[in-house]
Amino acid sequence: MQKTSSMKPVSAQASNGIGIGLSAACILHCLGTPLLIAALPGLTWLAGEWVHISLAIAAAFILVLSMRQWPRSPLGTQIRILGIVSVAGLFLAALAGVSERAEQIMTIISAIGLSLAHLTANFQRWHGG
């Protein structure tokens, strides 16, 4: 008798969509948190380093899930490198101890790179490139 798992693997499109959403959350967090804290000082917990680390860990986890389903081709390798470098940038921004402005810039650039990796993987998957 064969055991079947009730858990289905996350599709490439879904994991890439989640990755893009997390990248957008990183950008919104970087740009929106100072405004939210200025308007509602009770939300200072949003600026905590644990938020940055949590978003970076989630992005790394989704990247690993996504990369397993990305094409095995030279372009797929380049997309993987972009994703890995971008996630490393998120961790560097969160842990490097740089100024708030430098952290924002590093996070935004890394989140854009991560979004591009997910978008390119989805595009390549759909268009067979």
Results as ranks from 00 to 15, higher is better:
Gln2Ile: 04
Lys3Thr: 10
Thr4Ala: 09
Ser6Ile: 07
Lys8Thr: 11
Ser11Ile: 04
Ala12Lys: 10
Ala14Val: 09
Leu22Gln: 13
Leu22Phe: 09
Ser23Thr: 10
Cys30Gly: 06
Leu31Ser: 09
Leu31Asn: 05
Gly32Thr: 07
Ala38Glu: 12
Ala38Tyr: 05
Ala38Met: 05
Pro41Arg: 00
Trp45Leu: 02
Leu46Lys: 05
Ala47His: 03
Gly48Arg: 10
Gly48Gln: 13
Val51Phe: 12
His52Lys: 14
Ser54His: 00
Ile57Thr: 06
Ala58Gln: 03
Ile62Met: 13
Leu65Glu: 03
Arg68Lys: 13
Gln69Asn: 10
Pro71Val: 00
Pro71Thr: 03
Arg72Asn: 01
Leu75Ala: 14
Arg80Lys: 15
Gly83Asn: 06
Ile84Cys: 11
Val85Ser: 13
Val87Gln: 14
Val87Glu: 12
Ala88Thr: 08
Leu90Ala: 06
Leu92Met: 10
Ala93His: 07
Ala93Lys: 11
Gly97Cys: 12
Gly97His: 12
Val98Tyr: 04
Val98Lys: 10
Glu103Asp: 09
Gln104Cys: 07
Ile112Met: 07
Leu114Ile: 03
Leu114Lys: 02
Ser115Arg: 01
Leu116Lys: 04
His118Asn: 06
His118Asp: 02
Leu119His: 07
Thr120Val: 07
Ala121Cys: 06
Phe123Asn: 10
His127Glu: 02
Gly128Met: 06
